[in-house]
């Protein structure tokens, strides 16, 4: 088809003439006249349509239209300055705002910060300690004798028979008391590990905030006061809570604290606590006849999940933006 070749030759010629596209108005206009003017090359091709066989005409028409479109577009997109653009009279206030990159703070971090700030408000300091520790600091000094069934309460990862991934941040109370004389009043946030199968409700690691308050006259009643204050700050002033007897090797007497969930119609355990066992004091050469104290520990994940209604602990470790951007 002769016309097809002619179309290609006009296209090539335009591409040569428009590279670079002229910048001054006059040259642009003469280029436009040469190709798209009333007597321009494209118009000439359209005129040649009448010589085309009937059956080829639709195809030829399509090709020709494509060429015309390409050229028109080239002039539009290369129109110098603002000349070709239309005026904007009004700002469209309904357009979306410019997207800023927005960062989100992890719900566990938010929960940890809140817990820290509540205890710091009532005079607790914050301490940190090692995640890998020896049996003494993680178990023996906390009154978990070797071959005692209490050790079964915490499934443990071992690095060697004497070295463990800490199963609680209670190891830090031992480090603290080794390093400083009472009185002391600390909370200890940190990562702890349990050798438990991963499921929606348990993970191989979690974060704990443990607290310890030791002075000459710290009593069970003080423990109740401080932990009640914490629960009401954390879960609201009308939260119904209870202390019930329990067992931990490193406290005596020991308690667990539950809060009432109206929604689930049941008590939910949120922390364990108790008066520091004299054996713990003895293991760090603190005289249990003089010093008394209480200690408590809570799982950050549990509190975070309760607070935000998260039903699968694994979501906290997946880095899923669909989850994180909700916080």
């Amino acid at each position: 088809m002769i016309l097809k070749e002619s179309i290609e030759s006009v296209r090539n010629s335009f591409r040569a003439d428009s590279d670079p596209f002229p910048t001054d108005d006059q040259s642009v206009e003469s280029l436009r006249v040469k190709y798209l003017g009333r007597k321009g090359l494209v118009a000439g091709l359209f005129a040649g349509m009448k010589d085309i066989d009937g059956k080829d005409r639709p195809m030829a028409g399509q090709l020709l239209n494509e060429l015309k479109q390409e050229l028109t577009l080239a002039f539009e997109s290369n129109s110098p300055g603002e000349k070709g653009k239309t005026e904007v009279n009004d700002v469209d206030y309904t357009l979306p705002g410019l997207a800023f990159p927005i960062g989100h703070v992890h719900p566990l971090q938010q929960t940890m910060d809140e817990i820290k700030s509540i205890f710091m408000d009532v005079g607790f300091s914050v301490a940190y300690g090692p995640e890998v520790d020896d049996d003494f600091h993680n178990f023996s000094a906390l009154n978990f004798p070797p071959e005692h069934p209490a050790r079964d309460m915490q499934d443990t990862f071992f690095i060697d028979p004497e070295t463990v991934l800490r199963t609680h941040t209670s190891n830090v109370q031992i480090h603290l008391m080794e390093e400083q004389e009472p009185p002391l009043r600390h909370i200890v946030p940190g990562r702890v590990y349990r050798n438990e199968a991963i499921s929606f409700k348990s993970y191989c690691l979690f974060h704990q905030v443990e607290g310890i308050y030791v002075d000459k006259h710290v009593s069970f009643a003080d423990q109740k006061g401080i932990l009640e204050y914490f629960v009401k700050r954390m879960f609201g002033p009308n939260t119904k809570m209870r202390f019930r007897p329990s067992f931990f090797p490193f406290t005596e007497p020991s308690a667990e604290v539950d809060i009432w969930s109206e929604q689930r119609g049941q008590w939910l355990e949120i922390l364990g606590c108790g008066m520091v066992d004299p054996e713990v004091f003895k293991s760090v050469n603190v005289d249990p006849d003089i010093w008394h104290g209480f200690a408590f520990g809570m799982g950050l994940e549990r509190i975070c999940m309760l607070k935000y209604g998260i039903d699968d602990i694994r979501l906290l470790y997946q880095g899923d933006m669909r989850f994180l951007e909700q916080f």
């Binding site: 960062g103 703070v105 992890h106 971090q109 470790y317 933006m321 994180l324």
Partner: peptide
């Protein structure tokens, strides 16, 4: 986070 970074916690 104010600069646009989102926080994650990963398995150790």
């Amino acid at each position: 986070s104010g600069l646009g970074f989102t926080q994650v916690f990963n398995n150790s």
